[in-house]
């Protein structure tokens, strides 16, 4: 690993002042599970690393009647274990508790999970000059693309966003508070992610001199769930994830405000508009959940090796909806 100068500020303002307005030379360090891996592979070669672990105010979870606020430095294990979060947002806590193993959850943070780099093997290979490393082409388009995007229209780079917290949080209507040199700004988490196409882009819309402070989630007693289709039950990324949230939908009530967000199918978390419309104002039944799953997969344009993900989207959406509605998990029996 290339050596670097290490900074450990104690406030977020000091941290932001140490950042630069271009990516690459200075990197933020939180849990380190992604950054140090990238450094060891010489994919990231910062000459300055700004650790945020000395900023005490960055970690913590507050839940009141109106909203939950989770600091960007909060460990994934703390999110998974938090009783109030689990009561309101089982989708988020289930997603957090399925990340990596206990070691990774004790190290990784909320902010790091949202800002982590993608897992494309061409991107992660030091010697492959893909688009995101200043090269001229995406090697996954006609290469090994089993785990890549299926919603590929208009995309030059066909990575999938690796965050499993993001789909759950977006379905729950979360917002994100960001600090930059000009002060704080807020945005919907749905607008936070970005489809990168070159070395100056990241998987999100943060400027290089900004950092995530916290994520807020409205508390509104909506049913919610996240379902991941996996090859392995743990220590791996899912093949496809569906996160859902809606009002009602239980005990004969119709589902309204339906939100369905897919993970691991596109370069950003994918909001399944057609599926949301298909279910709006309806009962959560086996048939309606199946129809919503089919609608969620509409418009997919898979690559040479990943058409199998279309069927997984249908299944994941259906199962997430049935789980959120508190119905029997027939696939576990």
């Amino acid at each position: 690993m290339k050596n670097f100068t290490y900074f450990r500020p104690t406030t977020a303002e000091q941290a932001v002042a140490l950042l630069e307005n271009r990516w690459g030379n200075t990197e933020l360090l939180a849990g380190g599970t992604d950054l140090h891996d990238l450094q060891k592979e010489y994919v990231a070669q910062p000459s300055r690393v700004v650790s945020v672990t000395g900023i005490g105010a960055l970690a913590g979870i507050r839940v009141d009647e109106k909203q939950a606020t989770i600091g960007a430095g909060t460990k994934l294990a703390a999110i998974a274990e938090h009783a109030d979060l689990r009561r309101h947002f089982p989708s988020l806590c289930e997603a957090a508790s399925d990340i990596g193993g206990p070691q990774i959850r004790n190290m990784g943070t909320l902010g790091g999970n949202l800002c982590q780099r993608n897992r494309c093997w061409y991107f992660r290979d030091e010697h492959t000059p893909c688009l995101l490393k200043g090269g001229q082409r995406c090697y996954a388009l006609d290469g090994e693309n089993k785990y890549h995007a299926i919603f590929t229209q208009g995309r030059q780079c066909v990575i999938v966003n690796p965050s499993t917290l993001a789909p759950a949080l977006i379905a729950l209507g979360a917002g994100v508070n960001i600090l930059g040199p000009k002060g704080r700004r807020s945005t919907d988490l749905a607008k936070f992610f970005f489809s990168p196409a070159n070395a100056n882009d990241r998987e999100h819309t943060l400027a290089a001199n900004e950092m995530v402070l916290e994520v807020t989630i409205p508390v509104r007693n909506w049913a919610n769930a996240s379902y991941e289709v996996r090859q392995k039950l743990s220590y791996d990324w899912p093949l496809v994830q569906a996160a859902v949230a809606f009002q009602g939908g239980r005990n004969g009530a119709k589902a309204t405000g339906v939100r369905i967000v897919l993970g691991h199918v596109a370069p950003t978390p994918h909001i399944a508009e057609a599926a949301m419309k298909a279910l709006e104002g309806r009962d959560i039944t086996d048939a309606n959940a199946t129809a919503a799953g089919r609608a969620a997969a509409e418009g997919a344009k898979p690559l040479s090796q990943n058409a199998y993900k279309i069927r997984l989207v249908e299944v994941a959406v259906k199962r997430a909806l049935l789980m959120a509605a508190g119905m029997k998990r027939y696939w576990e029996m």
Partner: peptide
């Protein structure tokens, strides 16, 4: 529990 290979010593 952590992976010490991914913890930078100054941390």
């Amino acid at each position: 529990l952590v992976n010490s290979c991914l913890v930078m010593a100054p941390e």
